[in-house]
Write a protein that binds this DNA or RNA. Structure first.
Ligand SMILES: [Zn+2]
Ligand SMILES: [Zn+2]
Ligand SMILES: [Zn+2]
Ligand SMILES: [Zn+2]
Lengths: 165, 165
DNA sequence: TTAAATAATGATATGTTATAACATTTACAG
DNA sequence: CTGTAAATGTTATAACATATCATTATTTAA
């Protein structure tokens, strides 16, 4: 696995070219699914776009209401199926402490991110740190615990909100 | 803050004197609340007991149905209020990935645990590791992120389930 | 190229988790 | 006592998620 000791978003939530994020994400998703023989259907692609509308985690029912607006009555399973597909493909992550979803900006690599979530502005940044990964691995190994997955979510105040308070 | 590089439960979920766990937890809770001037009422104490019934995370509605059985019709807010109180006092932890709650065995110290949750038997062990804490702190500091709380949950197979499979 | 199998979607209902809002009771300080 | 704050009771509803079965689209393979 590559070294991802980087921050996907520098917290400058408002001041970057977000259309670029979305475009890249969709292109990557197309390529990945194509390579894997997974079908990124229109419905799934549209849900991915909606999750990527910002760097704020998006709830399933937020997605649902947008879909309903643009395509007429839509039922929860439609959204959850799409989200499940996107999760399986690693194209989005679920933020457990918010029951919400965010796009992943490097879906081609299997990884466990660290999510920094601002309690003030609501943005979420996915970061990676091999020191953290190793520390956790060392601990679980020492206890004989076999890890399947892990979630690490940090709630607090992002640098933007902290400086412009 | 003390060094808690220990495991609260050695995963021997079935083979220990759990009544002792519960008794200790309730005694500690009484003492703590008393010292803080917080009121551990009968209702709150009973909910704490129910959460402590095992080392498996317990859902709010599990608690609710037990309360209803023993005390007649009970409504969700009763349980959630008690759980909120217990969370505030650090007497229980919430497992975000399960929407469930577990007792904390060292509530007198402010701490962020690591929860190891077995996908097979459902038990949850709270462990602490200063190396992990420091690695996370270093990362968030370097990004200028001010942490309020953090949640670290690891899902996998506990040593007991792994050995006796 | 059509038939069977598989995958995806539609539609309805329901299950599960959590909170809002307001009334009532209880604890306890003055 | 009595006024105030804290806790609890009660009803309703919001928010999140899945089960089930019918239908349609896509792929596979005879
Ligand atoms: Zn990612
Ligand atoms: Zn912020
Ligand atoms: Zn125990
Ligand atoms: Zn186990």
């Amino acid at each position: 696995m590559k070294n991802f000791d980087t921050v996907s978003l520098s917290f400058s939530g408002g001041s970057h070219d977000h259309k670029h994020c979305v475009k890249t994400a969709l292109n990557d998703a197309e390529a990945l699914c194509s390579a894997r023989g997974a079908r990124l259907t229109d419905a799934r692609k549209r849900v991915l776009e909606l999750v990527w509308e910002s760097h704020h985690p998006v709830g399933a029912y937020d997605v649902l209401s947008k879909l309903s607006q643009e395509s007429g009555k839509t039922a929860p399973p439609t959204v959850y199926r799409a989200l499940d597909f996107l999760l399986e493909q690693g194209l989005i992550h679920r933020i457990e402490s918010l029951n919400a979803y965010v796009g992943c900006s490097h879906p081609s690599e299997e990884h466990s991110g660290v999510f920094l979530i601002c309690n003030n502005c609501g943005c979420a940044a996915e970061v990676h740190d091999s020191t953290i990964d190793q520390a956790i691995l060392k601990k679980t190994d020492s206890l004989g615990f076999k890890t399947d997955q892990r979630m690490l979510e940090v709630r607090g105040t992002c640098p933007d909100c902290h400086s412009t308070q």
